[in-house]
Write a protein that binds this DNA or RNA. Sequence first.
DNA 1: GGCATTCTTGCACACGCACC
DNA 2: GGTGCGTGTGCAAGAATGCC
Length: 283
Amino acid sequence: MPIPLTARWATSPRCEVFRTVYQEADAGRYTSWNQIEEAFLASMSSFDTSIAASTGSALTDDEKSELGADLQNGKGDFFNDLLVLLLERCSGVDLLTTRRVVPGLIVPRHNLDGVYPATGQVRFMLEAKMMGTPKHINSPKQKAIGRPGSADIDKRVKELAFKSIDLKGEFSRLQTMHGTAPRSGGAGGGDLTTWLRSVDPKIYFFIAVRVVSDADFERTMEWASTAQQVLDAVGVYCFEPTDDSFTTYRRRDGVPADLQLERVLYKACVDLQSVKDRAADDA
DNA sequence: GGCATTCTTGCACACGCACC
DNA sequence: GGTGCGTGTGCAAGAATGCC
């Protein structure tokens, strides 16, 4: 599977390390996170070292052109595309990686990262986010260790939680319109989590978080657990700085088993195959 | 094709609270 | 009271998308 041409990281010189990792995963036909974890960590270290080294004056237009216009953006898209690649390899199902406009029950247009199938009702959806950045020239007031990964996690979880409820509500409405009653009782007066997990689309949320302290890690886990109640599954990968430069990383252990990215990715793989079979039966 | 709008991601700042 | 930290809110930049 070639690098998506529309991806921001496909052309930026700073993202060369990402292309190398992606091509390694593609060539090796990798199907699990464990196979690519070390290369992923190394690419993050390389990328963030480049970001942190952008000291001196603010970037000129020429420098922006050379390095890629956006200073930080790129790793989030890379993380998303890498997960899609692994998931496709594992499940044998083609996901649609380009974002598409999907109507919800209340909000008429949602943009989604990775969905299946490419057309018609969405049955499976993947959302991936990267959080946390090192200190760099554009954030002079930032602490030396950088911005905590958990600083923005609440906003992202709340956004996705609403998107989940809205999309599943719309799917349920369409089922009712077509004479197919929802497979379990409605949310009103019942258990919202149980209802949400009984209704398509299956929504998987993956986050890679650069944590800078124990408190940062704990807060990340709390919000991941919250997200778990509204989504079908949440996969978390945490990494932390190991030296004074704060841009050499190692895996942060301690993520509960049900939140570990590698396990959730495998669950998503199995689920996606099931969704594909179910969609074929319904057709 | 050009402009306006929307979306995503990263960030600053104000405020409240705990601790010393 | 001063300091540090967590939290909530909203802004900014860049890219994607829509509209005329």
